[in-house]
C-alpha cells in the first residue's frame, strides 16, 4: 500500500466521524462547491447540538435547510444568513431557536485560514466602526486602527472537490473552490465529496490545490451542482 493511501467510503461510513456538539465546516458558496450529498447524509442522522460554519444561512431546498429544520443545529457562523427565498433560518432565528455569529465574509475566510496556518489571529480594518467591532479589541499599528480577529477551527470539515486521488489530493473546478481549501486545512477531520477518483500520479502535482495530507476520508458523488 502506498504511503497515506485512502479509499472511497460510502456516505454513512464517512459521516461516522461526526459527533454530537461538533463544530462543522461546510465548504461552498451557495450551491457552488457545496458537499450536497454529505450534508444530505448528515440530515439523516440524529446528531444534535451542532455548530455549522457556512458562508450562508442555507436555502430552504438545500441539505443545510433540512438540517436546520430538523433542529440538529444549535449555532451557525456565517456572513450571509438570509439566502434567497429562505425562511427556515429566518424563522428559527426570530424564534430564538438558533444562535447566529455573523462574520464578514473575508474575515470568515481569514479566520479559518489562520487556524489552518497555526496563527493566533490577525488585524483587519474590516468592520471598524460597525456592529461587527463590538466587544473586539482594537489595536493601533503604524498609526492605523485595526480589529483583532481570532482563528476559527472545526472538528470536522465536509468539503466538495472535482477530483481526488488515493492520497486525498484534490482539484477543484471553476468557482467551486471558494472556502474548500482553507477549511480542509483548519479541521481536525476532513471528509471530501469528490466527483471523480483518479489514480495516484494522474494529476500534475502543480495542479493539485489541496494536498492529501489535509484529507482524511472521501466519498465519490457527482450529484447536483459542484
Amino acid at each position: 500500500m502506498e504511503v497515506g493511501s485512502k479509499k472511497a467510503l460510502d456516505i454513512p461510513s464517512a459521516l461516522g466521524a461526526v459527533k454530537d456538539g461538533d463544530v462543522i465546516f461546510f465548504g461552498g458558496f451557495g450551491s457552488n462547491g457545496n458537499p450536497s450529498a454529505l450534508i444530505e447524509g448528515l440530515s439523516k442522522t440524529n446528531l444534535k447540538n451542532l455548530t455549522v460554519v457556512n458562508n450562508g444561512g442555507g436555502s430552504d431546498d438545500s441539505g443545510l435547510g433540512s438540517l436546520l429544520e430538523s433542529g440538529a443545529i444549535a449555532k451557525i457562523i456565517c456572513s450571509f444568513p438570509y439566502e434567497r427565498d429562505s425562511v427556515i433560518f429566518r424563522d428559527l432565528f426570530q424564534a430564538g431557536k438558533i444562535e447566529l455569529e455573523l462574520v464578514p465574509q473575508g474575515t470568515l475566510a481569514e479566520r479559518i485560514r489562520n487556524a489552518g496556518a497555526g496563527l493566533g489571529g490577525f488585524l483587519t480594518k474590516t468592520g471598524l466602526g460597525t456592529e461587527v467591532a463590538q466587544g473586539k479589541q482594537e489595536i493601533e499599528v503604524g498609526g492605523e486602527l485595526y480589529i483583532l480577529e481570532k482563528p476559527l477551527r472545526a472538528d470536522v470539515a465536509l468539503l466538495r472537490a472535482d477530483t481526488v486521488d488515493t492520497r486525498g489530493n484534490l482539484t477543484y473546478r471553476g468557482s467551486a473552490r471558494n472556502f474548500n481549501p482553507v477549511m480542509a486545512m483548519a479541521a481536525r477531520h476532513t471528509i471530501v465529496q469528490a466527483s471523480k477518483e483518479v489514480a495516484l500520479g494522474e494529476t500534475e502535482p502543480g495542479v493539485i490545490v489541496t494536498p492529501g495530507i489535509y484529507v482524511d476520508q472521501y466519498v465519490i458523488s457527482g450529484g447536483g451542482s459542484i
Binding site: 450551491s31 473575508g106 477543484y172
Partner: peptide
C-alpha cells in the same frame, strides 16, 4: 454549474481569468 458569480448565478470566465480560494480573494 461550476462557474457562478457572488450571487450564485451562472456566469462566465473572461479570457485570461484566474481562480483563487476565498481567503486569497479577500
Amino acid at each position: 454549474d461550476d462557474v457562478r458569480n457572488a450571487g450564485n448565478e451562472p456566469t462566465t470566465l473572461a479570457l485570461g481569468a484566474a481562480l483563487v480560494h476565498q481567503a486569497d480573494s479577500f
